[in-house]
Simulated assay, not measured.
Amino acid sequence: MKANVGTVDRVLRLVVGLAVIAFGYMGGLTSPWNMVAIGAGSVFVLTALIKFCPLYPLLGINTCGKEG
C-alpha cells in the first residue's frame, strides 16, 4: 500500500474529519445522521493518519507529489 495522500490533503482531512465528528456528537447521538457524520469523519481522520485513500487509485489521484 503506497501513500497517496499528501501533506496538505492530510491536514485538511484531519481538520474536516475532526469537525464532522464533533458536529455528529453535538446532536447527542439521537439521530441516525449523527452516526453517519461520526462515521464519515472517522474515515477522513483514518485516511489522514494512514496516508492512503482507497478511492484515489480508482480515480487516478495522487496528492503526494511523488510515488511512495
Rank of each mutant, 00 (worst) to 15 (best):
T30Y: 02
P57W: 05
M35Y: 14
F44I: 01
R13T: 01
C53A: 13
G24R: 08
A22M: 07
G41C: 08
A3L: 07
G24K: 09
G65P: 09
V36T: 12
R10C: 12
P57F: 06
T7Y: 00
G68A: 14
G24F: 03
G60P: 06
L12C: 12
V16I: 13
G24Y: 03
I21E: 05
G17A: 03
F44P: 00
V45G: 04
T63P: 14
P54T: 10
A3D: 13
I61P: 09
I61C: 11
F52V: 15
V5T: 10
A19P: 03
V8L: 14
T30E: 08
K66W: 09
L59K: 10
N62M: 06
G24L: 05
G6A: 04
G65M: 09
T47H: 08
L29R: 13
G39W: 01
I38M: 14
G39E: 00
G17V: 00
T30V: 08
E67P: 09
T63M: 13
N4I: 06
G6M: 03
G60C: 04
T47I: 12
C53L: 12
M35L: 14
S42Q: 00
G60R: 06
I50H: 05
E67T: 12
F44S: 07
V20G: 06
N62R: 12
R10L: 08
Y25W: 15
A3K: 15
A48C: 05
L14Y: 11
S31N: 11
F23T: 04
G24S: 07
Y56G: 10
P54I: 11
P57C: 09
R13I: 00
T7C: 00
T7A: 02
I61T: 11
T63K: 14
I50Q: 10
T30I: 04
G65Y: 08
G68K: 13
R10T: 13
V16T: 10
K66Q: 11
V11R: 15
L46R: 08
G60H: 03
K51E: 05
T30M: 04
T47A: 06
E67Y: 06
T47V: 15
L29W: 08
C64K: 12
G27V: 07
A19V: 11
V36Y: 08
E67M: 09
E67I: 11
M26F: 02
P32D: 03
A48N: 02
R13H: 12
V36S: 09
T47W: 08
V8I: 14
Y25A: 13
I21W: 01
G65H: 09
V20P: 01
C53H: 08
I50G: 07
C53K: 03
P57L: 07
V5D: 00
Y25I: 15
I21P: 01
V15T: 12
F52G: 10
R10D: 05
T63Q: 13
K2P: 12
V43A: 15
V36C: 06
F23L: 09
I38L: 07
N62C: 10
A22C: 05
M26G: 01
G24V: 06
G27T: 12
M1N: 06
M26N: 03
S42A: 09
A19N: 08
V20K: 01
P54K: 08
P32C: 02
L55A: 15
M1P: 05
Y56A: 14
V11C: 13
A40V: 14
A37H: 07
G27K: 07
I38H: 03
F44M: 14
T7D: 00
S31T: 10
I50W: 03
G60M: 04
A37R: 04
K51W: 01
L46P: 01
L59M: 14
I21N: 04
